[in-house]
Amino acid sequence: MLEQDQKLVQEAQQDPQQFAVLYDKYFDQIYRYVYRRVSDKDTVHDLVSQTFYDALSHIKSFEWRGYPFSSWLYKIAHNNVLKWYREQSKGQKVNLDDINEIADLTVDQNRDAVVKEKQAEVQKVLDQLDDEEREIIRLKFFEEVSNIEIAEIMGLSANHIGVKVYRTLKKVKQLLKS
């Protein structure tokens, strides 16, 4: 996996035309990631477009550190989302309701009522978390990114991410019990 990413990155650095391969491979992940954080679809398109343009313009300066190429893309998307939130003055919290609204557009209309209940329960809990805790939980369990990669994306240390994950889960557990 990593070796393949490294090879693709090297090819894209030598031939920008090869960047299309990376685009096709990681577009959906970045799209969902941004989609979960931004409720507006146009905003999602803008942030996703900006993320891949930034990646294309800086692909030659990318240094392989042993992390998946997706981590670099997540980091760019994360910075763009944060930047967008800063531009929106106080920032907008991406809540599960917005996500559900967006998801409702694509999901089958015949969804199970139980699932909706469970989603609503977890979403409510996540809404009670702060931005950093929610970002960590989404990257950790939705994007399935390792602590090291989360640390790379968020600019924190891996140990700090581990502690944050532990405390956030403990907090979510208490919220779920209540």
Partner: peptide, 27 residues
Amino acid sequence: ISKIRDAKKKEQIVVDDGFKMQLRQNI
């Protein structure tokens, strides 16, 4: 963790392929 993963699985985010192809062409 199980509850969070169940919520992820129930989450259905449909990627806009039109946007995807258009963005690809632009890139």
